[in-house]
Amino acid sequence: MDLLYISHYPFSAEAKEFIRSRKIGLGYDSIDSAKKHIHEAMAKGELAKLETRVESVLERDVINYALARAILAATGSRYLAGRYAVAKSKQIGKYLQAEDEAGLAKVAAEFGAELHAGSGGKFEMRFPDYLRYAPKAREYKLVNESLKEGRVQLARNSLVRVLEEAARMHIEAAAGEMTGAPPEIKKAAEELKTSLPREAPALTKVFMSEESYPPCVKKLLERLRLSDNLPHVARFYLATFLLNTGMKTEDVIKVFSTAPDFNEATTRYQVEYIAKKGYKVPACSGVESYGICAEACRVGSPLRYGKRR
């Protein structure tokens, strides 16, 4: 049993086996430790790397992860589960940075993705696996990748980012599976809900003339309010749309404050960049190609919605 691997990648088959074989106690210490772990993730939006090899610390870390997910599932809050998944996957990304080729291949295999060595130190991944796990961002669009014989060639950094996203999806998705939680977990979830905002703290209310927005924009705003983790392209589109309707940069940033991975500095940088570049709102065909068209309202351009009717 490789405890270091298990603690770095607690979603792995080995880690699951470890958790199963360990009768995890739900005593005060365990629960308290898991709660601290969650608080740390929520506060910073990312977890630091564990630099230790001390076995008891590594074990505690794996157990924290397992309990944290059970507790988060019991809170029923998408915001909390999403924010934890982001924080934990960022930590996993840091571990992945340090892996050699065999290490990366092993982690990829945990997600059912087969890796092959490509030319020039690159990695090859089958395209359906790539499409499943690559961040839904412009930078990762398949059309811009080197695709040959069914395999996408990836530089090391891109591969690490893809695996980090796979981990995030995994952690977030399984969080909703908990039913009939033990009383200790339920109690911890209740405590967590009172001590942490169950929903994202919207900085302040932003006035929006939402009725006149097209269905795609309304849908994205609704998902944001539910603290859904919107893909990058969706955020880019939403920011571009809002800026083009004349909304101030400050207000656009506030709109994003309910995202589970909200970080004011990053959001500010990106929104200001979009404003500075003066990006135009894409045509409906573009919105469709981002996969965020919500309804075939056939207006041609989202900005035209409501004006023609």
Binding site: F127, P128, L131, R132, R138, K141, V143
Partner: peptide
């Protein structure tokens, strides 16, 4: 099996690849 489980998003990406949609010349 290769294609069976592909999501709508993944299929959209395949269409975009074939139609050259979203190609970034700077890359």
């Amino acid at each position: 099996e290769t294609v069976r489980q592909m999501s709508g998003w993944a299929r959209r990406e395949v269409v975009d690849y074939i139609s050259g949609t979203g190609l970034n010349d700077d890359r």
